[in-house]
């Protein structure tokens, strides 16, 4: 028996994450890119949770939601905010 509910959840959330990554790649404001990157890592955390890898979810939440945003924010604050062209 194939659980269709898992597949539907994965399909919908991966579709939303695709839109997030698309907007993130073509975003000119780097600060907004950081916010979209946090949204993308939240969606990926759900996907990893449905795929039943709790260790990876714990490490991934700490790293992607907690640390990458702060690291990129410091870099944006020390350098320039808007991407040319």
């Amino acid at each position: 028996m194939i659980p269709v509910l898992h597949l539907v959840m994965l399909a919908v959330i991966l579709g939303v994450s695709f839109i997030t990554i698309f907007l993130m790649v073509f975003e000119r404001d780097l600060l907004k890119m950081i916010v979209l990157s946090a949204a993308q890592s939240t969606f990926y955390a759900i996907v990893l949770y449905i795929l039943l890898v709790p260790d990876v979810v714990l490490a991934y939440i700490a790293v992607a939601v907690g640390i990458y945003t702060a690291l990129l924010m410091f870099a944006v604050k020390k350098t320039e905010r808007f991407e040319e062209a």
Binding site: D55, L58, A59, A62, V63, G66, I67
Partner: peptide, 9 residues
């Protein structure tokens, strides 16, 4: 590794 990554927060 997970504890270290969590500690880094």
């Amino acid at each position: 590794f997970i504890g270290g990554a969590a500690f880094a927060v």
